[in-house]
Each structure stands twice: as C-alpha cells, then as structure tokens.
Amino acid sequence: MTIYKTTKYILLLVGSLMLNITWADDGSLFMLVGNCMGCHGPNGVSLGPATPNIAGMNPSTFVKAMEEFRDEERPSTVMRHIAKGYSDEDFQTMADYFVKQAFIPYQQTVDADKVKKGAKLHQKYCQKCHTNSVHTIVGSTNLAGQWMLYLQFTLVDIYTGVRDMPIRVLQIVENMVQLEGIESVDNLIHFYASQTEHK
C-alpha cells in the first residue's frame, strides 16, 4: 500500500482551513500563536519534513514539551531558546489553540513492505501506550501521519539516549532494536507515516 498524493491536495485543504482564523479577542492569541506558524506551518500543520506537525496535539503533551525545551531537558535547535520567552500561561494558551486545529497529515511516500513490518512492530512494542497509533490519545504526540524525518530525529534521540525518556520507553526501544535489528526503527517510521486516516 504505497501512497502517492500530490502536494496540491494538502495545500488545498490547508488553504481552506486557514480561513477559519478569526480574532474574537483583541488579537493577542493570534499574535502569540502566529509566531509558531513561521516554522510549524499554517495552524501547526507543517509543510516541511523536519518540523513536526503540531495541529491537534494533546495539550498536556504540548505543555510538557515546552517545559522540557525551556529547561533544556529535550534536544532541540531553536526551541530551547524560544521556549524561554513564554510563561506557563502562554504554553497553556498555545496548547489550547493547537489542539483545536485539524491535524492534516502530509501524504508521504512509504514503502509497503516496511509499513507491513512496522505495523507488526507497533503492535508488539508500542501499541500498549500509543493506542491505535492515533494522535489524539492522551499522553501521545502526533505519531500517526507525522513527518518521517521528524519521527526519525525523535527515535534516534531516544535510542541514542540524547533525549531523556522514562526508562521503560528506552528499554522498549532498545529491546526492539536488539531483537528486530536497527531497520526496525525505519519500519516503524514508514508505518506511522502511512497512518493518514485518523479515527
């Protein structure tokens, strides 16, 4: 099941989505979250493969991520600087905004064979927490339909210990790589990227 879709498809969707922005308030909200969109795309729907899609992101995960960036507990390029510029209240405001935005996955080219293998790996190692691989579940980030390059960054960081994770998560990833080989990481990435139908 290889998925090919043109860029146009997503641009159209995003285009129509953008029209929903209004400022019911005094514009403060827009001026705050508008700054995120330069890198994270319209309403958090990233069009670039390295920057994660943050539309529809679970709010507590969002806030936690910002706190970790601020406290430099999570690897990043610019986020460790940027997160320091906002209050806890700002984090919450941003989180509440982005969770309301529709997550529009980018149709990426995936390898059908890897997707199949990845599905099995997901079932075996990840599903217990990342139910259905759907992005909306509590405690999960947007995994399904997320950018492959970003998923790769994240998994590599977890596996190499660059990113501090609960020991349980690290063990699962290490365990998976040991038993299934390093290519299992790639297979998982292809699987998640293929999950563009959100339930």
């Binding site: 641009l11 969109m37 330069g38 670039g48 493969p49 390295a50 390029t77 610019v78």
Partner: peptide, 24 residues
C-alpha cells in the same frame, strides 16, 4: 555532526512553512 545536519533540514523546512505563511 547530527545536530548540524538537522539544522540544515530545519532551515529548508522553515522555508516551506514561512513562504506558505506569506504567499499561499
């Protein structure tokens, strides 16, 4: 080297998003 490489990817990703924000 990995960090430097990521910044290169982020640069191009940023370009996609910011130009959409401006022109699309």
């Amino acid at each position: 080297a990995e960090v430097r490489k990521r910044e290169m990817y982020y640069a191009h990703s940023w370009f996609k998003n910011i130009t959409y924000d401006m022109f699309r």
